[in-house]
Design a protein around this nucleic acid. Structure first.
Lengths: 108, 108
DNA sequence: ACGACACATAAGTTGTTGCTTATATATTGT
DNA sequence: ACAATATATAAGCAACAACTTATGTGTCGT
């Protein structure tokens, strides 16, 4: 899977406000589908579908524990997004170009 | 227009591969609608519509010169995206958290 | 003023997306 | 084994998104 495809999946996944909200919710800590369903005003299948999209984009992880399935943020998942940004760094104010260094360190 | 709305427009705009391609094309230099239409295999109205979406997201600027309309990247346009990323910096490897500093400098 | 050119907008069509309800699958406790 | 719980998948539907062609608007050259 090349970068372009990964970027496409990420932008696609994050284009939906509900999905961004679920993602943000997961940044506050691991949560089961049940928990997320309680937090948002959409059905459980809708939540599962959003989670599947986030997982497909590599933004979250799944962990089964008994009857529950816990999802949590996959930190490395946003890397394609950072790469995309870095690609256009030339258009930011000069000093921001230092993101390069951060990316290099991130790879290590 | 608050941050959430701005982020929504940006993610929405960048979710489409054609739009990302057009954006990338513009990073290589200012271009007229005519030029972009020649570069991509979609109709001129389609190009104009994509450009309108990018402009609505604050990612590009418009400049009229005679019959031509030139578009170019608006460097500050990606800031909401950086802000969004920065919001979840806690989930990246520690050293990447220094993006904070970059953002601060960017504001100045 | 008129024709040609560059672009934007309108209207219509088709595929996709995000939701719903209904149902299937997996796990647990009794 | 069975009922209850948690999640995923299927099917259907309404809204939307991305394109098309047709037309409107603005600018230039003659």
């Amino acid at each position: 899977m090349n970068d372009v495809v990964a970027q496409d999946r990420i932008f696609q996944a994050l284009a939906d406000p509900s999905r961004r909200a679920i993602f943000e919710s997961l940044t506050r800590g691991e949560a089961a589908v049940k928990d997320l369903t309680a937090r948002f005003d959409i059905s459980q299948p809708a939540v599962s579908q959003h989670l599947a999209a986030l997982k497909g984009a590599g933004l979250v992880n799944r962990r089964r524990d008994g009857r529950h399935v816990y999802y949590k943020v996959e930190p490395r998942g946003i890397k394609p997004l950072i790469d995309w940004l870095a690609h256009y760094r030339a258009f930011w104010p000069e000093h921001v170009a230092r993101l390069d260094q951060l990316l290099e360190r991130m790879d290590k």
